[in-house]
């Protein structure tokens, strides 16, 4: 039977910068490939002819296997819809963002938090242990993100909870993994090794410049500097023999934009060749905190430009690109945790939230955890976070990036502004695909 093929509606096809050839990306399969100009002619002529499947050339077969071309009968919109439903109905996994304390030793100039609550209460600690003990009997994966505040102001709570989580997971063959967002000030080599033992394998640590250009933005609550100590900690961690990833995050706005290149040079000197240290650059935003009217944020056009321009500078200096960038292009890879039904933020007083930013907003107070492990949940509020994506937006439904973000990259942004929350990666997909291509080449060389 003759087959007629079509190009997938979820393809993106961009020029390789500075040379011939194209980069193909498909958001339903996550595949990325390069083709030369002859192969592109084959690809573009595809829709003009019928082909026996058995007679597809080797290249067209590979394109087919990776989702770049699909049978003309294939209902791709239905496939995208099914992907979205499967994510919404996933009950086999759980992701908790846990705040062992909401206190912080830093007072960063652009922070959105109010530091209202200190360390996690005994009642909440008991509740979390009991909740995981119960959940572990019916899930296959548990993922914990240690967050705060500054989580390393409460290392004993992290150790206590981790031991209990690991015990529950081991007893039920549940795959356990953890990551941590920390300012790095208390992440000594000894503390780091202890955390590796507790299965914390991914860390995000922020540096905003070298020395004073970092310190004026990310200082201690008493105003003292922090850069020197964080760098000393990172150097000590570099000497640890182990499997882990450190995302070095750089937050930029108009104030420190000029200081980022010298920081990239420094990071290259310190970590070039060690693929465990990776680069993640993000623009600062007005995230709803008390300092919003004093933050010199870049406008969207400027932020989009500098984000990938600076990231490219880092890659050219030999600093590996954060894996989170490539992962965000996978199917469901750009869906925010706040939009996932199996994800929850647990604050230190036992309140449950969907979003880790708007902690004080009523729509984001979605429940409470009790000491016996039971969770009171407001399903109506939760659905505001999980059901406000592609199902409400016809533009998202027809977008090539739909399988990746499902209209749910940031439900908070959509709620607050009424605008579509397109991810940074989608807005500059040409630059991002070229970055991933260059990164892949640098690994293979």
């Amino acid at each position: 039977m003759a087959h007629k093929w079509k190009l997938s509606r979820f393809n993106r096809n961009v020029q390789i910068e500075g040379q011939g050839g194209r980069i193909l990306y498909n958001s339903l399969t996550g595949a990325i490939a390069t083709i030369d100009s002859i192969e592109e002619i084959q690809l573009q002529s595809l829709s003009k002819k019928n082909d026996e499947k058995g007679k597809l050339s080797e290249i067209l077969s590979t394109l087919c296997e990776n989702g770049f071309i699909v049978s003309e009968q294939q209902d791709e919109l239905l496939q995208a819809s099914q992907l979205h439903k499967s994510l919404k109905n996933d009950t086999s996994t759980m992701h908790l963002i846990v705040m062992p304390t909401e206190a912080c030793n830093f007072r960063c100039t652009y922070c959105y938090q109010s530091f209202q609550h200190g360390s996690m209460s005994e009642e909440t600690i008991r509740g979390l242990k009991n909740a995981i003990k119960n959940f572990a009997q019916r899930i296959t994966h548990l993922s914990i993100s240690w967050f705060g505040g500054e989580p390393l102001l409460a290392p004993e709570i992290i150790a206590d909870l981790s031991a209990s989580f690991l015990e529950s997971c081991n007893a039920n063959n549940v795959v356990y993994g953890a990551d941590m967002s920390t300012n790095g000030y208390h992440l000594t080599k000894e503390r780091f090794q202890e955390l590796l033992g507790l299965h914390v394998r991914r860390f995000m640590i922020t540096l905003d410049g070298i020395g004073e250009s970092h310190d004026r933005r990310r200082k201690l609550s008493g105003g003292q500097s922090t850069y020197g100590r964080i760098i000393e900690n990172l150097k000590a961690i570099r000497d640890v023999d182990g499997l882990f990833v450190i995302d070095i995050r750089i937050n930029f706005d108009e104030q420190n934009l000029v200081n980022v290149p010298e920081l990239l040079n420094e990071l290259s000197l310190l970590f070039k060749g060690d693929r465990r240290f990776q680069l993640l650059i993000r623009p600062v935003g007005c995230w709803g905190g008390p300092q919003d009217d004093r933050i010199p944020v870049c406008d969207r056009t400027s932020a989009d430009y500098h984000l990938w321009e600076l990231t490219n500078q880092g890659i050219e200096l030999g600093i590996p690109l954060s894996e989170t960038i490539g992962d965000s292009l996978l199917p469901s890879g750009s869906v925010c945790y706040a939009a996932k039904s199996n994800s929850m933020v647990v604050s230190s007083n036992g309140n449950l939230h969907k979003c880790s930013i708007a902690l004080d907003e009523d729509t984001n107070r979605v429940g409470k955890i009790h000491s016996n492990g039971n969770m009171d949940l407001d399903m109506e509020k939760i659905s505001m976070w999980t059901d406000s994506g592609e199902e409400t937006d016809t533009v998202c439904q027809s977008c090539y990036y739909r399988p990746s973000c499902q209209g749910n990259h940031c439900p908070l942004y959509r709620m607050r502004t009424g605008k579509r929350p397109c991810p940074h990666e989608k807005r500059k997909i040409k630059q991002v695909l070229n970055l991933l291509w260059r990164e892949a080449n640098s690994i293979n060389i």
Binding site: D36, T62, N66
Partner: peptide, 8 residues
């Protein structure tokens, strides 16, 4: 044609 990342 060169695959940078195959379909999952």
């Amino acid at each position: 044609m060169k695959l940078i990342r195959p379909a999952i």
